[in-house]
């Protein structure tokens, strides 16, 4: 009897998990569908790239996006600088496509906000994304944080702040934390000036570092039907 009882408990537990997992899976797919409603946008942005070996001033410009993965920063004659395509600046690129397995971790509280944490694992082994953790604000159906582990590009974390464009699932501010490989040009090529820091001290720095990109979205124009050509202009 005790045997059956314990079996029942196990079964019940499994079922409850199954129910919760089904719930989480549904939540994820709903979220993904909502995100997919934005086919393209054109947004005025202020972007700040913060990588230790890079000194880049705040860039103002127009950020163009077209699903699934086209992105372009227009700066009126200035240079555009974006991370390589596979680490895109929109959340749509940080969540796996196709069939996924969703594991519900449960509710967590972050900065006084109750969030649902789920782990998403793509069923397709060839996907660049290995695992995505999503912190979802269920009431507003938006992900406020995504942590994606990729096959080739390390781990990318994205924090999203929502306000005016919440209904489209579009953030006002995005902060991306990513792995950046160290960079070194052979000395002598550049003939540096002012190496105040002794060479030894510099070498002690870690080879892989974190980079941060902060984007403030000032305004969006959504689903205006951007064409591919607009992303290929020189």
């Amino acid at each position: 009897m005790r045997k059956y009882l314990s079996l029942l408990v196990v079964l019940l537990t499994l079922v409850s998990y199954k129910v919760r997992a089904d719930d989480a899976t549904k939540l994820f797919y709903t979220l993904r569908t909502k995100i997919a409603t934005v086919k393209d946008y054109r947004a005025d942005v202020k972007m700040k790239i913060d990588v230790s070996f890079m000194r880049i001033p705040q860039l103002k410009g127009t950020l163009l996006f077209k699903a699934p993965d086209k992105m372009r920063l227009e700066r009126n004659g200035g240079l555009s600088m974006l991370p390589k395509k596979n680490i895109n600046l929109t959340i749509s690129n940080l969540i796996p496509v196709g069939n996924v397995t969703v594991i519900d971790i449960g509710n967590v509280t972050v900065k006084g906000k109750k969030l649902r944490l789920v782990k998403v694992i793509p069923e397709d082994d060839m996907n660049n994304i290995v695992l995505t953790k999503l912190w979802i604000d269920e009431a507003n159906l938006v992900a406020v944080r995504a942590e994606t582990t990729t096959r080739n590009d390390g781990t990318v974390i994205m924090d999203l702040d929502f306000n005016k464009y919440m209904s489209y699932g579009l953030p006002d501010k995005v902060t991306i934390y990513m792995d950046v490989k160290d960079y070194k040009l052979p000395k002598g090529v550049t003939m540096d000036y002012n190496n105040e820091v002794p060479t030894a001290a510099k070498d002690a720095k870690p080879k892989a570092q974190k980079g941060t990109i902060e984007i403030n979205y000032l305004s969006y124009a959504i689903n205006t039907g951007l064409t591919d050509e607009q992303f290929n202009k020189k």
Binding site: F53, I56, P57, R75, G78
Partner: peptide
């Protein structure tokens, strides 16, 4: 023509806005 200027140092990459 004009544009933002990049400057490559042996250990860093610097971008300077054209107005600067």
């Amino acid at each position: 023509g004009k544009g933002d200027m990049i400057n490559l140092k042996s250990d860093s990459f610097i971008m300077i806005l054209q107005k600067d």
